[in-house]
């Protein structure tokens, strides 16, 4: 008997609270928004990665170009230094010969 009463009490229909529907709808809306945001997250992250990669490649290329220019400049300086040195050596030699030959 007691069991019967207890069951009746436990299974008594209970009305949902007044804000139940609003809460469910709000939750659905929130989940939809999250899903929408998640849909954009991947492409945005991908685009950002690509941008970072592109900027990185550009920086590396610029550095290499700079290095190439600097190497060319140093080679040019060395080439002219050698040329100048050889010309001056020739000049000195001519001076020496002029003096030695007593011209």
């Amino acid at each position: 008997m007691d069991i019967e009463r207890s069951l009746q009490a436990a299974l008594r229909p209970v009305d949902p609270p007044a804000d139940f529907t609003a809460g469910v709808m709000a939750r659905i809306a929130r989940e939809q928004q999250q899903r929408r945001r998640a849909r954009w997250q991947m492409p945005v992250a991908l685009a950002a990665s690509l941008l970072v990669a592109a900027v990185g490649v550009r920086i590396v290329m610029q550095q290499r170009e700079q290095q190439r220019i600097e190497t060319a400049r140093q080679q040019l300086a060395l080439a002219l230094e050698i040329t100048s040195s050889q010309l001056n050596g020739l000049q000195q030699r001519l001076n020496r010969n002029t003096m030695e030959n007593g011209i």
Binding site: L78, L80, S84, L87
Partner: peptide
Amino acid sequence: LSRLQGRLG
């Protein structure tokens, strides 16, 4: 050219 010796760094 001959003046450049020693001045090109």
